[in-house]
Design a protein around this nucleic acid. Sequence first.
DNA 1: CGAAGTGTTCTATCGTGATAGAACACTAAA
DNA 2: TTTAGTGTTCTATCACGATAGAACACTTCG
Lengths: 139, 139
Amino acid sequence: MFFSINHTNGLAIFDQIVRQVKFAVANGTLTPGDMVPSVRELAKELAVNPNTVVRAYRDLTNEGILEAVRGTGLNVTEESVAHCEQERLALLRERVRHVLEEAHSSRLETSEIRELVEEELTRLERAAKGKRGKKGADS
Amino acid sequence: MFFSINHTNGLAIFDQIVRQVKFAVANGTLTPGDMVPSVRELAKELAVNPNTVVRAYRDLTNEGILEAVRGTGLNVTEESVAHCEQERLALLRERVRHVLEEAHSSRLETSEIRELVEEELTRLERAAKGKRGKKGADS
DNA sequence: CGAAGTGTTCTATCGTGATAGAACACTAAA
DNA sequence: TTTAGTGTTCTATCACGATAGAACACTTCG
C-alpha cells in the first residue's frame, strides 16, 4: 500500500519505514486512530525481515507516534500529527542540505546546481504524470 | 588541504574520499602528475584510520584514477581527467535524484520542493560569501 | 475452549565500514 | 648503509543494519 523500500538511496530500511510513516501522518494519509500494517504483514509486503519492521515500529512508538494496543496492533496517536507535520520538512531539509553541500564543495557553480536540480525535478514530474496516465488520465 | 569528512551525511568515509578526489580532478584542483596526500598523512589530517584511506585509494587505483609509484606515492593519471569530468555530474545527480524522490513520495508539491531547495541553496551561498568575507572581501 | 492474529523479546549469524596494530617491499635522502 | 618515508597486505576487533528462527503474553473470533 503506502510504503516502499529503495535499496539504492543509502538510507537504512528501518529508517525509510520510520520516515514514510511520519510523512504519511504529516500529509494525512494516516490519521490518529488508524492502524499501521502488522509487523508480519508489512515485512512480507516489503520482502524484509520482520525484525527490521519491529525496529522501525519500536522507534516510532518511543517517539510517541504509534501506540500499542496489545493483541490488536499499533495505531497512530493524537499527538503524532503536530509532531510529524513539523518534522517532515526538517527531515527532508537535512538531506537536501547534505547533497547541496557536496555539490557546492565539488566547486559546482550555484547555477549549475540549480540546473541539475531542475532537470531531476522535471524528470520526476514527467514520471509522475506518466504513472497517472497509465491508470487513467484526470481532467 | 582539499579534503574534509562529514560524519552526518550518511556516506561512508572511504566513499567521501573517493568522491572528493574525483571532484578535485574534475574541477582541476588535482591535475595529472599531482600526488595525493600519503595514506598516513591524510589519515592523520582527517582523524581517520589509515586503513580507511587505503580503501579509498585502492578503489581509485582500481578505477585507473591513481597509479602507484612504489616507494614514492600515488599520482593522478592522465586518463583520470575525462573519467572524472564525466562522472562528477553523474555522482551528484544520483544523490539529488534520491532526495527529490523521497520528497516527492512524501506528497510534497513540486513547488514546495523547489522552494525548499532554493532556501538551502541561498543559505549555502550566504555561508560561502561569509567565509570569503572573513579572509578578505573581493571587489 | 482453541486457533489465529496481534506486539514483544530473545539468541545467533552475516556483511560491511571502521578501527587498531603489525609486518613487508620499495625508494629517496642523509 | 642507515633512516625515514612511500604503498601494500595481513589479522583482530567492534558497531550496526539486516537476516533467521524461536518463544512468550495478549486479544479477537469461531
